[in-house]
Write a protein that binds this DNA or RNA. Sequence first.
DNA 1: CACCATGTTCCTTG
DNA 2: CCAAGGAACATGGT
Length: 284
Amino acid sequence: MPELPEVEVCARYLLPLLRGKAIRAIEVRREKVLKPTPPARFKKNLLGAKFLNLERRGKYFLFELRRKNSREKFYLLGHLGMTGKMFLAPKQAPLPKHAAVILDLGANRFIYEDARCFGRLTLDVSAVERLGPEPWDKKFTPEIFHQQLKKSRQPAKVRLLDQSLIAGVGNIYASEALFRAGISPRLVAGKITRPGTTRLLAAIRGVMTEAIDCGSTIPLNFSGGRKSGGLFYFGRAAEALDYYGERLCVYGRAGQPCVKCGATIRRIVQAARSTFFCPCCQNA
DNA sequence: CACCATGTTCCTTG
DNA sequence: CCAAGGAACATGGT
């Protein structure tokens, strides 16, 4: 479930477990996820390196490492794509079916698993350079947001998915933020009013913050994992949906009554992706 | 079998 | 050159 909040929650979980740990061995089962870094270079660079820090930028992880006998830091970029998971597990635990990369850290293994392999674990960090500001960036004011939106004739929902406009908004939270702001997903981005833009930015920040807070309260563990054996927070387990699904006002709720006005939530397709909204609350 | 899925990149079109 | 649209990527769940 990787949009900005899920990546943030995962980063907070991973950091204390990774910090100070050295990579003793590396197994790459799906070379595709390293792209464009060649597997040989990936291994050569990472083997023996130690994790110093982990930051999140948009939906990306930036792992900071340093090689043995070197003062020079370097970065590893991670992205979960649609189905990626990154977690630590005891060395004796069975590996998940779709383990793509396994890093031996001693007692534990860092496991990146990804059924669809849309994610990445790579030395090519260039993707973050193309990202727009973080939602909470003080310099990203409603005025600047409005200026950017004005240039576009795309529907508001589609515009929000552009990571170069604002980093981290994905298909779920785009619908949720527009609902909270009372803006129709079909409204042309350039026609969003100045007050609407202020509401939208506040709504994006609000839904993201609440999702992070919610995710942080979920007990992360491996033992409860069933088939995947991973963190149930990232899986399809009923518990995850209890925590996660019930917080969403419109996403995945087509045909159900709006929590605010009772009108029927609709599903439409925009840019080949589902959008959910309340036709009554989001008329602007 | 049909359809759906949390994302990004690349190619084409206008 | 730029904005926008759509396909591709690979697999699993319902």
